[in-house]
């Protein structure tokens, strides 16, 4: 017994070492970012407090570019409003009957404005922290966009802050398509350049040209369809495989992110329930296929 205690005491540094290595590895190999504990992410009170203080100072640094971006966006929206108003006038003039259908897709969505207080672009797995949390109505798995395009998806929510899985994180795949074409693929970051991502698994028949806009497909409840994401920079080429990959230059500048909007889907619960119901039905059919 004494020898055993002596053995443990003499080799205590090895045991300590092994214990710490095992704990670190347990953290390291917890791959699903949604399962990270709130205290171990940057959305906890201490970290978000420190980042909040830091961003109080640094948020002024990029204001010039952000202003330019906002102005450009503003101009685009303004022209869109004018165009739509004209169209509306024309339609009304034509005395289109009262059954006229307006484009209602955007009415499902509401936006919460938030401020980025922590951001990284150089790690293999990047995350952001924003200064809105559950007290402001933010929930996990909601989308985040900025004035230029898609930014990420919320993974962990604290009372006053939330952690966002950045688009620059291979854990996050975004369903996208080339504008004005029907084939869709998934957008994923390859870990190299923070301004370029890959649009993978596009079907062979998809038509694209260099410079085409890539938009969200809307095949999920997270992002509304048609949100701009990036621009195709791969040259036109012959394709031999059934699926191919495009290089996409992202519209959102992740190095100067400042103000973002959280996308709130008002019909999300309904959609989820519907999908869950479908899944159950499917499982039932698999279990007893001869029920009917």
């Amino acid at each position: 017994m004494n020898e055993l205690i002596l053995f443990f005491r003499n080799n205590s540094k090895w045991f300590m070492f092994i214990i710490y290595v095992v704990i670190s590895c347990m953290l390291l190999f917890q791959h699903n970012p949604y399962q990270h504990h709130i205290y171990l992410t940057s959305a906890n009170a201490v970290a978000s407090g420190a980042y909040g203080l830091g961003s109080e100072v640094t948020s002024y640094f990029n204001l010039r570019e952000i202003n330019a971006d906002l102005n450009a966006r503003n101009a685009a929206l303004q022209s869109e409003v004018v165009n739509l108003r004209e169209q509306l006038d024309i339609l009304q003039e034509k005395n289109y009957t009262d059954t006229m259908v307006t484009d209602s897709t955007m009415q499902h969505f509401r936006f919460i404005v938030a401020h980025v207080i922590n951001n990284s672009v150089s790690k293999p797995y990047n995350y952001l922290t924003i200064n809105k949390g559950s007290n402001d109505g933010v929930k996990a798995e909601w989308g985040v966009i900025d004035q230029n395009g898609v930014v990420g998806i919320i993974s962990n929510v604290g009372p006053h802050s939330a952690r966002v899985i950045s688009l620059l994180n291979p854990n996050f795949r975004l369903s996208c398509k080339v504008k004005n074409s029907d084939g869709f693929g998934s957008l994923v970051w390859d870990g190299k350049d923070p301004s370029i991502a890959l649009l993978e698994e596009l079907p062979r028949h998809t038509i694209y040209h260099k410079g085409d806009t890539v938009v969200t497909s809307g095949y999920s409840a997270v992002f509304p369809p048609g949100l701009p994401v990036g621009r195709v920079i791969t040259e036109d080429q012959n394709r031999k495989e059934n699926f191919f990959t495009l290089k996409v230059e992202l519209f959102a500048d992740f190095t100067t992110l400042s103000n973002v909007q959280v996308v709130v889907n008002n019909y999300r619960a309904e959609l989820k329930a519907l999908e869950a119901g479908e899944k159950e039905e499917e499982e039932e059919n698999i279990k007893n296929p001869f029920k009917q």
């Binding site: 390291l28 171990l40 940057s42 922590n118």
Partner: peptide
């Protein structure tokens, strides 16, 4: 790690 979101 907690500050930088680099789990472990």
């Amino acid at each position: 790690d907690i500050f930088g979101d680099t789990q472990g």
